[in-house]
Amino acid sequence: MGEPNIVLTRIDNRLVHGQVGVVWTSSIGANLLLVVNDDTANDPLQQELMSATAESSGVGIRFWTVEKTINNIHRASARQKIFIVVRTPEDARKLIEGGVPLKNIDIGNMHFSEGKKQVTKYTYMDDKDISDLKACAEKGASVYVQEVPEDKKQSLEEVI
């Protein structure tokens, strides 16, 4: 089987919510949401809540761990236009280093927590986040900040 068709990867602390489920999914024409997050992969309630959004948007949804994604992504069919959502830059980096071909990485919501500095209106990062994102870019991914599809993309170099 050929390379999986991963249309977009988004880093979003809230994973799948209204903005991601409805707006992003339809604007990029994805038909499968792949939530890659080790906690969510073992949390039925989170899965049920995110499935509600996917169901109303008429797209499929999967909840996989990072490891399962690395081991199984290549089974994807060509008709599957995949939208990957991860919570952290670290998980995006692990996917890329595990051979998952992420070409476009959109940085969405990254909330404030202790030790993180504001980078753009909706993104707060620490040194680890920045080095993970740089590592993704070095592997050839286009890494940028874009909150909603209407916004202009701001490249990683531009914001850090």
Binding site: P4, L32, L34, Q47, S51, G60, I61, R62, F63, N72, I73, R75, A76, S77, R79, Q80, I82
Partner: peptide, 8 residues
Amino acid sequence: TESADDGI
């Protein structure tokens, strides 16, 4: 949410 026969 598990896959169909074709794909993931």
